[in-house]
C-alpha cells in the first residue's frame, strides 16, 4: 500500500548573494499537518521528487503557536505564519504547495530572511517607555479598560513582518517603515509615561520613510495574523503628526 503524498515546491537560495531556484519535494501526508511539520519532514529526509539528495531546507521558526513571529513565509503567494497555515486548507486551494521566503527582506538562506530592519525601526521610533530604572517607585499610571483594549491589541505585534511583506509601499530599496512601526508608535504614544517621548517619535515618524509615505493599500490590516488595528494606528499617528506639525510651526524651537 502506498502512502498518500503531496507535492511541495520550495524556493531555495544557497547564500545571501546567490541566485534562487525551485525544488519540488514529495511529502507523506498525515492528517492535521501544518507547513512547519511539512518542512520538518523534508529536513528529516531531504530528497527531491526526482530522487536527488539535496541539502535540507533551512527555515526560521520558534514557538509554533503563532506568538513568536519567526516563521513568516510566502505560502501560495501570501505572507503568513507557516505554523498556523494548515496543509489541508492549502491542498484544497492547490494540489501543489508553494513556499517562498519573504520577498521584502534579504535572504540568509532558503526560507530564512533577515528582518533586522524591523528591529532597527523599533530603535528609531524609541519603542520604549522611559522609566527611571528598575527601582521600586510604586505602580504605573492607571488606565481604563478601554485604553488597555487598544494598547493590548498593539502589544500583540510579534514583529513577523506580514504587514510589510504585503505592503506595496514597502520595498527592499526604499526606507519606508510600514505599519509595524506606526502601530508601535501609537502604542507608546498612548501610554501615560510613554507619551513623554511622543515628540521625539513624531520627529522620526514624520521624516523620510515615515507615516506620510503610507499609500493606504491597507493590505497590512488584512494580512496581520494577530489582527492588529493597524488602520487605526496609521490614522492616529497621522492625527498626532498633523497636530504636532502645527504645534511645531508655531512653538517649535528648531
Amino acid at each position: 500500500m502506498s502512502t498518500k503524498t503531496f507535492k511541495v515546491k520550495v524556493k531555495r537560495q544557497d547564500e545571501a548573494a546567490s541566485a534562487s531556484y525551485w525544488q519540488t519535494f514529495d511529502v507523506d501526508y498525515t492528517p492535521n499537518m501544518n507547513v512547519i511539520s511539512t518542512l520538518q519532514k523534508i529536513a528529516a529526509k531531504p530528497v527531491t521528487a526526482d530522487g536527488k539528495d539535496v541539502a535540507p531546507v533551512v527555515w526560521d521558526c520558534g514557538c509554533l503557536e503563532e506568538v513568536c513571529g519567526a516563521c513568516t513565509m510566502v505560502i501560495n503567494g501570501r505572507a503568513c505564519q507557516a505554523c498556523s497555515t494548515l496543509v489541508d486548507e492549502l491542498l484544497e486551494e492547490n494540489p501543489v504547495i508553494q513556499i517562498e521566503p519573504m520577498s521584502k527582506f534579504p535572504v540568509v538562506r532558503d526560507l530564512w530572511v533577515d528582518r533586522s530592519r524591523m528591529f532597527n525601526n523599533l530603535k528609531r521610533i524609541k519603542g520604549w517607555v522611559p522609566t527611571d530604572g528598575t527601582y521600586d517607585l510604586g505602580a504605573g499610571p492607571q488606565e481604563t479598560q478601554e485604553e488597555q483594549d487598544l494598547r493590548y491589541a498593539y502589544s500583540r505585534c510579534m514583529t513577523c513582518g506580514c504587514c510589510l511583506e504585503a505592503c506595496p509601499q514597502f520595498t527592499k530599496d526604499n526606507d519606508f517603515m510600514g505599519a509595524q512601526s506606526f502601530a508601535q508608535t501609537d502604542y507608546f504614544n498612548s501610554h501615560a509615561t510613554g507619551k513623554l517621548l511622543a515628540d521625539e517619535r513624531l520627529d522620526v515618524i514624520m521624516g523620510p520613510g515615515g507615516i506620510s509615505d503610507c499609500g493606504n493599500s491597507q493590505n497590512c490590516v488584512q494580512v496581520c495574523p494577530k489582527e492588529l488595528p493597524l488602520l487605526t494606528a496609521i490614522a492616529s499617528v497621522g492625527r498626532q503628526a498633523t497636530i504636532y506639525s502645527i504645534k511645531r510651526f508655531f512653538t517649535g524651537k528648531k
Binding site: G77, R78, A166, P168, Q169, T171, N174, D213, G215, N216, S217, Q218, N219, Q222, V223
Partner: peptide, 24 residues
C-alpha cells in the same frame, strides 16, 4: 515620484482596498 517608489501587488493580495490603492 511616489508611484515609482512602490510595487503594486494586486495579483497576490486581492483585497478590495488593495485594488483601490492600485486604481488610485
Amino acid at each position: 515620484v511616489y508611484i515609482f517608489n512602490s510595487k503594486w501587488n494586486t495579483t497576490q493580495y486581492k483585497y478590495e482596498a488593495n485594488y483601490r490603492y492600485t486604481m488610485q
